[in-house]
Design a binder for these strands. Structure first.
Lengths: 235, 235
DNA sequence: GCAAAAGTGTTATTCCTACACCCATGT
DNA sequence: ACATGGGTGTAGGAATAACACTTTTGC
């Protein structure tokens, strides 16, 4: 098997934008970079792809290394390939974003990478073009969640409608009418009401709901209309 | 400046999915591959990125080499990185898709690459994972055009409403009510009616319209609702 | 008994869809 | 005069948005 001669080869990395939700605020999982250059500065979790590893596998591995989680929501965001984005050596980075239930995050691993959840509204300076990656991921999250039911990935298996609404309000930095919101959400047929209530949020307690797995798979790609005025959202 | 040691480097390519519209059908610009392996088979236009070339620049260059056009609509589609997608040597490919006015395509260059416009409904077998790339590009085109006014990129500067409707009907393989269609399109405020008519399509002739450049830039990202039932569209 | 959050229904408006006829012109 | 495609208006139905009160229960 011949190779392509006279072509330059490059490092290829994967970087992960990991979103979480603590019930009140959206957060991002960042690490203190342990590697030169830029050692000690804030960074997205990332790594180089390995010779026998598909791109998506690499993204999965990196996510697993940092969080201990498998099977979480993972979607390719964009390939970043500017010549000098990593000043050490040219590296093409494929960014992925994930949505995880923050309560499943296993904290014991965080020592190895010095990982921390940071408020999305208070992202520190990041190395390289990672700030640009985060900005694009935020846009895409808003864009996509306006028409597809993906935000459930940020919640525990059982959640209440008020919790869900808090999440949407955090993502869009807006507030919605709760009557209209719950009517819309329930009209999708995605949610199954549970018998138990969550008594944490109020004295009365709010009923738990769970995703209907079957129709979730079906309607994942359906156009919904969760957000009243999705104008002025950007891709 | 040190380099990252012990990491493998890879070839990185760009492949272009180029859509065109001839007034009746959607087409794809394909080439006969002149390079081993797979010499002579149908392929997307592509090439390796160069050491001092940003990713998007590479996509631009490749498009220019094949079509002679500059400044056309170009959008990153997806990064394909399966280990054995190119059996010769591992190559990560970043796919871009473009929309061009087919009548601006300069045919004289086609000899060099044996380029041909192929009906979208009759795509031949393609090398590597190029078929997968084309499928994804079709999905994304449908998805995006349902909510953003991008299909204008496929038409000449001056076009008529019936031409535009033909284009939408080709993209969605459906037919729309012409009264509703023209009302929707005109209500965007994107179109400026011209004095002249196109007498090619009928005896009566249809008025030309042009994009209002200012509001086009503004509303490019706006959510529209061109397609009656955008359910069952996939990302 | 009261504070705090959950849950629910109605109305007005807007938007969308379905539908049919006349117009202008080249032959 | 007729065939061909261009252009326009209306009415019924569906979806959306705006709005306020009652319920539950822990304290």
């Amino acid at each position: 098997m011949s190779r392509y001669l006279k072509q330059t080869r490059y490092l290829v990395a994967v970087d992960s934008i990991i979103f979480g939700f603590d019930g009140e605020n959206l957060k991002l999982l960042l690490i203190h970079r342990g590697l030169k250059p830029e050692k000690g500065r804030w960074s997205l979790m990332g790594g180089f792809i390995q010779p026998e590893e598909d791109l998506e596998k690499a993204a999965d591995r990196i996510l697993h290394e940092l969080t201990g989680l498998k099977g979480v929501y993972l979607e390719q965001l964009y390939a970043f390939g500017n010549v000098h984005r990593d000043p050490t050596e040219r590296t093409i980075s494929v960014a992925y974003f994930s949505l995880i239930d923050i309560h499943q995050y296993e904290k014991q691993l965080s020592d190895e990478y010095h990982a921390e959840w940071v408020l999305l509204s208070e992202i520190p300076d990041l190395i390289f073009d990672h700030t640009e990656m985060v900005e694009l991921a935020k846009k895409k999250l808003r864009y996509k969640a306006a028409i597809h039911p993906i935000l459930f990935e940020l919640l525990p298996e059982k959640f209440t409608i008020p919790q869900l609404q808090n999440l949407y309000e955090a993502v869009y930095d807006a507030s919605f009418d709760k009557r209209n919101f719950s009517r819309k959400v329930l009209s999708t047929g995605l949610l199954v009401k549970q018998k138990e209530k969550d008594k944490g949020g109020s004295k009365k307690g709010a009923f738990y709901y769970q995703l209907d797995k079957g129709s979730y798979a079906d309607k994942m790609q359906a156009f919904l209309n969760f957000i009243p005025n999705p104008d002025n959202l950007l891709i």
